[in-house]
Each structure stands twice: as C-alpha cells, then as structure tokens.
Write a protein that binds this DNA or RNA. Structure first.
Length: 803
RNA sequence: GCCCAGGUGGUGGAAUGGUAUACACGAAGGACUUAAAAUCCUUUGAGCGUUAGCUCAUGCGGGUUCGACUCCCGCCCUGGGCACCA
C-alpha cells in the first residue's frame, strides 16, 4: 500500500504549477474576469508566520474555485517594502535597505510557494522599486497640481522614538502606532493632503460597495460628519466677531459663556488685546506643553482662564464672558464653543469649575423645570423647550430647525458641516521612503519635479539615522539637496522629507493590471479590463488607514481622469476581513514572547495541504482564533483517509458504480461546499467533506471513477497537491443534483418538547401524518387525559401537538 | 461615555424560529502488535434511573411564540474601534 507522503508530492506539483504558468492571468480573454486581492505584506526579516497564511489560503481557495468556474482570475502578490524595521536594520548593521529587502522578499516568496498559493508571480511588484515609486511620486505631483497637497507649519504628532511626524490615523490612544511611545506635539512644517475635501463622498459612496457593516461603521465614525451652524457673536465694545460652531442652536437661549481653545486662531490673533493677557499667555503655554494624552487622561476635570472679553448673544442681548479652556479642541470647528451648561455635560462641568451661571432651557425628565444644580439634571438628547422665547413648548429637534433658519435669515450665522477627519500629514523624517518630488525655489516657491526627471531616486547614504532636530537624514546630503529650480533655473533646494509608508499602497492594486508599464502607472486598456477589484480581503486594522486612504486616492485619480470613468469611483467592489491567529493560550504571537509558529515547520512535519486545511478548519475566517498544535492532526488524518480511500480498487475500475445513498451524500456535500466557500465559511465546508469521507469509509463499495473526480474537485481548492496527485483531471467546478429524499424523519413534539421521531414517506400532508402520529403508543401516553387544542405541522419536518 | 462584534461540552467550534452540542481535538475503554507508534471500533454536556426513559443545561433576569442559542426589553462580562468632536 502506498503511503501519503506530502513532502514529496507537494514539491513535485509546485514545480509543475510555477513553471507551467497555470496561474498567470491574461489581459485579454473570452472568459469573464475576476480580480481577487489580498493586502500585500511588508517583508520583514522574520518571515511569514502562520497568521499571515490564513488570508492567503482563504483567497487562494476562492481563486482556485473561480478558475474552475471558468473565470480569468487575477490573484497577484507583491511587497509593500518601505518602512521602519528595514531602516532600523540598516542603521544597526549598515546593510543597505535595498539589500535587506531583496533578501526578505525572496524568503517570503519561498514561504508562499511552499503553501502552493496560486499567485500570478509574473505581476510581482515592489513599492521600493524606483520604477514603481516613480508613479507614487507622480500621484503626489498630481495632488499638488490640483491643490490637494500643501505645506503648512503646524503642531503635529511627533514620535520621539521613531523621530518622525505621524498622521492622526497612526496615533493609537496617544501612542505611536509602530512603537507605542507617547506622542508629543511639535511645531513643524509639513506636507498635508486634503483628504477632508473628500469626506462626504467617502461616506456617501459606501452605499455602493459591499463591505462588512463594521467596516463601514468604523469609517463613518472616523470621518465623523456633523451638521450644524457657525454663529457669529459680536464682541462687547468692539467691531470684532467671534465665530462658534454648534449642532445645538436650539439651546442658545441657555448660553452663558464662550470657551476658546488655547491653540485656536482667535487666541493667536487677539491674545495681546485681552485685558487678562498675562493669565491667558501662562495658561496657553502650560496647556500646549502637555502631551494630548495627559490632557485627556485627566478626564473631566475642567480648567480655564477668563480673557476679560465678553460676547453678546444676538437672541437676547445677554453678555457671555469668553474663556480659554483646553477641553476645547483647536482643530475642530472654529476652535471655539458656546457654553450651554444646562444641557451639555462638559459645559456644565466647566460652569461649575468657574462658577458660571446655569440656565435651564429644556424640560427635564418627569417634567422637571427646577433650577439645574446637579449633573443628573443635565438633559442632553431630548425634551421640550422652555425659557426660550419663541421656541417655548417646541420639541428640541423641531426647535433646532426653526432657530437655524432664524439665525441664517438674520445674518447671524451660516449652516456648516464639520468632520472629525483631519487632513493627512504626509511628511516623514526618514530615509527609507519615497522622496517627496518637490523643489523649493527662493524666487518661485514650491515647484514640482518635472515628469521627465521622475523618479527622484533615494541617494546612497552612509548614515540612515534619523536626527533629533526632526530633519530627514536626506537633508545632510548636499548633492541631493542642492538642485536647480525647474522654472527659473536658479539655485533651489529639494524637499528632504519622505512619504509615509501608506503612500505606496494607495494605488498598487492598479499596478498589478499593468506592472511593467514605463509610460503610465497603468494603461487605460488594462484598467478598463481589470478594475475594479472584485474581492479585496485585508485586516481590520487598516479600516481607517490604508482602506480609507486608497479609496480617497482612487477617487482623486478618477476625478482627474487618470483612471477611466466607466470603472466607477470605488476601487473595491467587495471587502472582507480575516481574523488574526493567536498563539496557544489566546495571546498575540510575537517574536519577543517567543511563541511564533513558523509555517516552514508545519509544512515540514505535516505538509502544506494539512496546514491549508487546518487553518481553514480552525474556526470562522473573520474571527480571531488561537493556534492549537494538537488540532492540526485532525486535518492530517482527514487527508490520509482521502488518500487511502481514493486508491481503493473501485475508484480505479470503470465498471464500478457508487451506491445511491453515497451519491446522495456527495450531491449534498458539493452543494454545501459550493455555498460555504462563497460565504467564506471554510470551516463548515471542511466539516461537510469530513462527514462525507466518514460515510464513504463506512460504505462497502466506495466512489466510482466519475464520482471520485467530483469529490477531488471540491477538495482541490483546499488541498490542491493531494488532489492533483490522486489524479484529478476535472478542471471545472462540479454541478450537483438537488437531492429528493424519499423518507423523512418526522419530529413529533407535544407542547414544543420532542417526544418521538418517526420515519415516514416524504410529502405526506397534515391529516396523513396526524393519523400516523396520534395513534403511536409513545405519543398516546403523552396525550392521555388531555385535550388536543391545536396541531402545528411543518411538512416533512415536524408536528407539534398542543394539549 | 459612544459605536461594533461576541458569550454554547474538558478544548476549537456547529446550528439564524423547528432533533442544541455537527465536525474536529482531547480523554477513557477495546481490537491488532512481543511491545510501542500508526490505524480501526466503542463511549464521552450534567443529574436521576436496572432498563424504557425522565429532568436540567446555549452569560444573567424578564418577554413574544405551539416552539427561542436564534426575535424583543433590561442587565453582566469579554474583544475591537473611537473618545472633551461642541
């Protein structure tokens, strides 16, 4: 008897597949196209661990099924290789990042091929290849030319450990996304991208894509749209106005003070004029020195100082003192809020801390109209108006509409929409990234590098170390920095900051359509054929980073006709997310904990097909799941069984015939597997095949030649090497016949409790079943002395007698 | 605090209104073997009972329904995201 030897057969078939070009997608085909994509990895020196493999295997199953269904499938892979670990490795060892990257990608590719993944390697891309990042730079230039890239001096998030600025999306709980260091505020001149201009469309167009609800929710939340009104209040004894953003103008009769943020424009412009300017200056200095996280960590404790100025409420002429307080954010709205302490928790706390007046303008729960002295009386979201002149008695929502129109009509303010989303800080002070292709001319200002001079290549340097003063290491290289102005030919300097590591992944999915094009980032013809991506899988951690950024950049390129209009303005039709694999015991796998499982070891011990089946069987694809070193043997045993049973003589004998019961089971299994793969329910697809194999093993005569082909076909996306070895010839996805059962197991219950199961002919109607059931001795026992009140009947399934 | 997902045997999980615990791991017993491994067979939610069988059990408490892991209301816990966003 031959023994299942995966190590031997897997090598053989991989060699065959990768040399034959079986997985190479064609740019023209009579077949319908299907573009399947998983996020490309950062090739770290540690190599792949088993967690990386899960999404690749899952999508590989779909890719293989689609090919069998007659699609021209594009399933590509590449490397998102700019980033800090490689740079840090270069700093430590002096090995150039290009060299380290080449070594790492080679290792990653070896590991991927070890799993038999059906990637089209003819389209392999690398974001650090100058031929690739030429186009990343080109996109930056287009953004600049269209007014969406600008340089501004501002307080940015600064990671003192990585020595670089960070985007808001890269700050997690006040810490650096990469290294966890507490982020500081630092004044720096930075390139920013106006993603906020696309905020509405990034929300609106989610309606047209098939993403999981949690992904849509998170993006919508992150963008944080709020509709409201900017009200201008005149400053007492002055011609100046102060503008305030509010979503609740209905409560404006209850406004008793104004608070401006320490870093707001209003403070910057007027600080010298404040009667209390010394107090204000001291407060501003103190609060800006605090890292943002410390400020919020102090929770609800409100601080502030009066400016000495007051503003006048247009509605009732009331004088409202203006304070500076750091619970107000400088970057949101106008950097200034109107305090309605009776109906906003934060305003209440501020009023209490400063001893300011509190006016009730909304009736509280149970009709409470008393003076507000306690936090629990602060009514925020519902109620009817009171003490508010012409709004009295109205519901707050109705009152909001009325007062908005009133304020606009009177010319006291304008309706506006604000977003939590900020413009994207695009400058990094590191070596290993795309140089920003801009030149600063003392005469002409910022100029783009002409397209013919692209790419601006990273110069060879001896020192990669980022500097403490926040300057990029490139700034020390005079040969790189000093250049000529493309406009006036005068002496000018290059931008020395590089792009964030998200830049290369903004558009990579389009490069796969045309990876070797030297004239365009991707040809119109190929984009029209392949885009949009039909199915994009990736990690939840990218929802408000890469996924949002790349949707934005795609929309921009669509707007400027860099991509054909007919492919639509969303890059990805469907998005799914995989759960990460945890180490045994449910903790994260990490090098420092020493609990990382390397797929190389698993393949060596059990074979790639076993690893593939196990990773798909462990649990739901989208769910986080711990690795179980013992559990994997179940997958191996299953494949062993398939191997042994497939080599049985009847499967080789053309005259043999499968018994009808097993044929029925096979049909049901094909149906289940076909449907489950589409829903990414790989775990239940495998359990159905396991059940089938158990039946197959138990039946005296096994599958015949034809049925064996069908079974191997549905197993092949999961265990492609094994099924190829067992002689799978079928290149199409098998069809199934709908199984009609002749007998059914009728569930008999009394008062909803199962009391018996009776086998009977299928298709009987209620009276026929009643006849059989009501006289059955077991049931009679339950009905004795009781009156039948009602009978519920579900055909071929269940009968419930209510007594 | 807000938004989202989840809570089922010893373990991973299955079942989206109709047989709760499929499939797999582990464990126990048995067969084969000089022995072990591998393989195969049996048992495996808890309790009561000699058996037939009965009762209880899907985080907790209510509700809807002939019937609820599944739907509704109120809690508790775990994970993820956001967080003084006016």
């Amino acid at each position: 008897m031959q023994k299942y030897n995966p190590q031997k057969i897997e090598k053989k078939w991989q060699k065959e597949w990768y040399s034959s070009g079986d997985f190479v997608a064609k740019n023209t085909s009579k077949k319908p196209k299907f573009y399947l994509l998983d996020e490309f990895p950062y090739p770290s020196g540690d190599g792949l661990h088993v967690g990386h493999c899960r999404p690749y295997i899952g999508l590989d199953i779909i890719a293989r099924k689609r090919r069998m269904e007659g699609f021209n499938v594009l399933y590509p892979m590449g490397w998102d290789a700019f980033g800090l670990p490689t740079e840090n490795y270069a700093i430590k060892t002096g090995v150039h990042p290009t060299v380290a990257t080449a070594k790492n990608t080679k290792n990653f590719k070896r590991q991927m091929n070890l799993l038999g993944l059906s990637f089209d390697w003819s389209r392999e891309i690398n974001t650090t290849d100058p031929k690739y990042y030429k186009w990343t730079q080109w996109i930056f230039i287009k953004l600049f030319e269209n007014g969406l890239a600008y340089k501004e001096k501002m307080a940015i998030n600064w990671c003192p450990s990585c020595k670089t600025g960070l985007a808001n999306e890269e700050v997690i709980n006040g810490n650096c996304e990469r290294c966890g260091t507490k982020v500081e505020k630092k004044e720096k001149s930075q390139w920013l991208i106006k993603i906020t201009k696309y905020a509405d469309r990034l929300i609106e167009d989610l309606k047209n894509v098939d993403y999981p609800a949690r992904v849509k929710d998170q993006q919508i939340n992150w963008i944080g749209r709020s509709e409201g009104i900017n009200i201008d209040y005149q400053i007492e004894n002055s011609k100046k106005f102060i503008s305030v953003f509010t979503t609740r103008p209905d409560t404006n009769f209850g406004a008793t003070f104004l608070v401006v943020a320490p870093d707001s424009k209003f403070v910057k412009e007027n600080v010298e004029l404040f009667p209390e300017k010394e107090k204000v200056k001291a407060y501003v200095k103190e609060s800006l020195a605090k890292p943002e996280i410390d400020r919020t960590a102090e929770g609800k404790k409100k601080t502030g100082v009066p400016t000495g100025w007051s503003a006048i409420n247009n509605l009732n002429g009331k004088k409202m003192p203006i304070y500076v307080g750091d619970f107000v954010l400088g970057q949101f709205g106008t950097g200034c809020v109107v305090g309605v302490p009776g109906h906003d928790l934060r305003d209440f706390e501020f009023a209490k801390a400063m001893g300011l007046e509190i006016i009730r303008v909304v009736v509280g729960p149970d009709g409470d109209t008393s003076e507000i002295t306690d936090v629990r009386q602060v009514q925020e979201e519902k109620g009817a108006m009171i003490n508010s002149g012409f709004l009295d008695g109205k519901d707050i929502h109705e009152a909001t509409k009325i007062i908005m129109d009133h304020i606009v009509e009177k010319g006291w303010g304008t309706k506006v929409v604000n977003y939590k989303l900020r413009d994207w800080i695009f400058s990094r002070q590191h070596y290993w990234g795309e140089p920003i292709p801009m030149i600063d001319c003392p005469k002409c200002g910022w100029q783009t590098v002409p397209e013919k001079d692209l790419p601006v290549e990273l110069p060879k340097v001896a020192k990669y170390q980022p500097t403490d003063d926040g300057e990029s290491p490139l700034s020390a290289i005079e040969k790189f920095v000093n250049t000529k102005c493309p406009k006036c030919d005068g002496v000018a300097k290059r931008e020395t900051d590089t792009m964030p590591n998200w830049a290369g992944s903004n558009w990579y999915f389009m490069r796969y359509a045309d990876p070797k094009n030297n004239k365009e980032f991707s040809s119109e013809k190929n984009l029209k054929y392949w885009m949009p991506v039909d199915w994009y899988n990736g990690g939840m951690e990218h929802t408000t980073l890469h996924l949002l950024y790349s949707r934005f950049i795609f929309k921009f390129l669509w707007d400027i006709d860099a991509v054909p209009k007919e492919i639509g303005n969303e890059p990805y039709k469907k998005r799914t997310s995989h759960g990460i694999i945890l180490a045994e015991g449910g903790v994260k796998m990490s090098k420092s904990k020493g609990n990382v499982i390397n797929p190389d070891d698993i393949v060596k011990e059990y074979g790639a097909d076993t690893l593939r089946v196990y990773e798909m069987f462990m649990g739901p694809f989208e769910q986080m799941i711990p690795w179980d070193a013992k559990g994997i043997v179940g997958a191996r045993r299953f494949l062993e069984k398939v191997y042994t049973l497939s080599l049985k003589p009847e499967a080789r004998n053309p005259k043999s015939e499968t018994n009808p019961k097993l044929v029925n089971e096979l049909n049901k299994t094909i149906k289940k597997v076909s449907e489950d793969i589409e829903a990414m329910k790989f775990n239940t697809a495998i359990s159905a095949m396991m059940s089938f194999v158990n039946e197959w093993q138990a039946s005296e005569i096994g599958l015949d030649k034809k049925d064996l082909q069908k079974f191997l076909a549905i197993l092949s996306p999961f265990a492609p090497h094994l099924t190829a070895e067992l002689g799978l010839k079928e290149k199409t996805w098998p069809e199934y016949e709908e199984v009609k059962e002749t007998t059914v197991m009728m569930i008999v219950s009394v008062n909803g409790k199962v009391r018996d199961k009776m086998e009977m002919k299928a298709g009987l109607d209620q009276s026929q079943v009643e006849g059989l059931v009501l006289h059955a001795p077991k049931i009679k026992l339950w009905l004795e002395g009781k009156q039948v009140r009602k009978i519920i009947f579900v055909k071929d399934k269940l009968i419930n007698i209510v007594v």
